[in-house]
Design a protein around this nucleic acid. Structure first.
Lengths: 139, 139
DNA sequence: GTGTTTGCAAAGTGTTTGCAATTTA
DNA sequence: TAAATTGCAAACACTTTGCAAACAC
């Protein structure tokens, strides 16, 4: 039995087309999970579990590949806060993060709530790629 | 053949005593490698290699244990910049980092060269543990 | 059809753990 | 000697890879 639900329009297909990634079943399904629910911070294993829960057959290897392709294409931003696990942020605009160490949860800090001033210029021969600010909170 | 060199006084023993860690041969040797050469950013495997190169017999497991004990004791600070590898900073004072993505090298940014202003207060029920700023540069 | 993408299972990397043997105080 | 520490090897968690089968255009 299949229950059909009316869903809001998904931007997944558009996003894939915009960056020139072939909209395969797996990529589309993952893109929907990632982008149709507002800003998310998610690990590969979490995304894979969600896919399984939603009856989307995707291998974990494909989830990893897809997350990296999306990141390279600029649809995602990778965040490193714990050694041994990567998170991917669907919000690719300029902002920073709270990290709840106990629960391993990430939470956006809007750019107007925090400011890094006087960023030193990059050492000779180097370019600043990004400035990451992680505010680590306990509890 | 062994070449003896005159070395400056090592603070390793004092540091271990100060934090109440039993000064075993391994801990002393690692503390010397860590603290007698100025500020360092080092991974467990790197430290283990240095120990081997210096004819100090320490197992990798002990290097990991020791790094964590030192970190808990406040002698080191752990820095996460790449998923899958931890670095330990012998400089535990308040400062931030350049991270050279190509070479995976870390470099201190003195606190007076960078400033995070308007750090948002921690969400209710939480305390800010630390604010990490990573300036990622390529090359 | 042709080149791309997928899934699987195996391999890889960095880290942690259990426990007997050793060392320290 | 009693308690803490070490080393080993196995276990771990997460991630990547190689390659044949499946898929998209």
């Amino acid at each position: 039995m299949t229950i059909m639900t009316v869903r809001p329009y998904s931007q997944a297909l558009d996003r894939l087309r915009a960056v020139g990634l072939r909209p395969t079943r797996q990529r589309l399904a993952l893109a929907r999970l990632l982008f149709d629910g507002g800003d998310r911070h998610i690990s590969a294993e979490q995304l894979h579990s969600e896919a399984m829960a939603g009856n989307i057959r995707v291998s974990l290897a494909t989830v990893y590949n897809t997350l990296h392709q999306f990141t390279e294409a600029g649809l995602l931003r990778e965040i490193v806060v714990e050694s041994g696990r990567s998170y991917f942020d669907t919000n690719t605009s300029d902002h920073h993060h709270f990290f709840y160490e106990k629960t391993s949860q990430l939470c956006d800090i809007p750019p107007d709530l925090i400011a890094v001033t006087r960023v030193p210029s990059a050492p000779a021969g180097h370019t600043i790629r990004r400035v990451d600010v992680i505010v680590r909170v306990d509890g």
